[in-house]
Design a protein around this nucleic acid. Structure first.
Lengths: 195, 195
DNA sequence: CGACCCCTACCGACCAGTCGGTACGTTGAG
DNA sequence: CTCAACGTACCGACTGGTCGGTAGGGGTCG
């Protein structure tokens, strides 16, 4: 059973994630937060230690969730191609379910203090390393092209920009489109492995 | 010949683009700007009307440049595949040359006022429509897969995230990697057009 | 049952500091 | 002498954050 306090706290979290995503952390004043939640300062600071701690909590949520789900995917025994597809749909689902938090997570890293940065960066690298591991696995198995180490960062960007700017298209279809291109490219008649 | 005023103004532009890219618009105070440029408020406001106008100017620069170069690419008479590759390398070059400004351009849209938004959005759509036109041209010619309208937004994200987070790899190679995947995908032995 | 109490959730006035911006004085080159 | 280029002093609004206080619901005890 959920207490009243937990409920209020949750309301603060979602409301501020939404505002931070739309206007940025620094672009969102406390006052704005307060009347989005329907609280006064006293009530707010009864639940939240500081604005920055609030930001950190918002950012930790999506990455912690996907660390769990991606871990399960890595544990399966399919080939690299299958795992890659699963990582993609998993990421797409996560972003669709929690777009605001993901936006904040990917945009506001620089706002955090030193140990907030450390917490986020560690998890981020942890997640991206799973992609890298699958990509590496596929490369050695002859399934995949050998890719630059930095490319996986771009995949995050590919997803978030598509999801943020897409209005009409349903999320599952977006994910399908993205993964289609990511795995097989835009070209229909590929020149087989140039150079 | 470049006057002293123009020079100072340029220094303001580059310095603030750099700061805005690293800490965000709202995260960068005037004071910080000032001693990055080496000016006092009076000197600063002699050249710049307001902080927000400064932001707009920073954002207009990269998009206006690439509207020119991409226009030249569209005007050539190669096939869609060639044009797509050229659009990609052009975008990569532009970002590599002006990473800070591009970061700001892609992050701080929400900060702008109504007519700032209008100016940026119009140019952004104008640019993305060129990608869409090439993609459409390639699709009708049978060169390309048919893609979701929103996917081109993702391409911007793919590029900027790769460039921002990549440390070691030289930009030309990054662009090559990105375009390789974008055109032919990660998989080496593509299942020809599933479903 | 009812009187009591305490603790949680919340209010709202207040604070020091910082924000972007302005008015005006000073300097130096042409 | 002039005018652009800059420095300095200052402003009011607003920032995140604090603090003393309070309403009310649930538990406890007579």
């Amino acid at each position: 059973m959920r207490t009243r306090s937990e409920d209020t706290r949750a309301r603060i979290l979602t409301a501020s994630a939404d505002l931070f995503a739309r206007q940025g952390y620094h672009g969102t004043g406390l006052a704005e937060l307060l009347d989005a939640v329907g609280l006064q300062k006293g009530g707010f600071y009864h639940h939240i230690a500081s604005k920055e701690e609030l930001l950190l909590e918002i950012m930790l949520d999506p990455i912690d969730r996907i660390l769990v789900s991606s871990d399960q995917i890595l544990a399966t025994d399919g080939d690299a191609t299958t795992k890659l597809r699963q990582l993609g749909t998993d990421l797409g689902n996560a972003m669709a379910a929690d777009l605001a938090a993901w936006t904040v997570f990917l945009r506001e890293y620089s706002v955090l203090g030193a140990d907030g940065k450390a917490q986020i960066l560690q998890r981020r690298q942890q997640y991206l390393d799973r992609w890298r591991r699958v990509l590496q696995e596929g490369a050695t198995a002859g399934e995949f092209r050998t890719l630059d180490h930095a490319f996986v960062e771009g995949i995050l960007g590919l997803f978030i920009y598509t999801f943020v700017w897409a209005r009409a298209t349903p999320p599952e279809e977006l994910t399908r489109s993205i993964m289609q291109v990511l795995m097989h490219g835009i070209c229909l008649h590929p020149v087989p492995h140039p150079r």
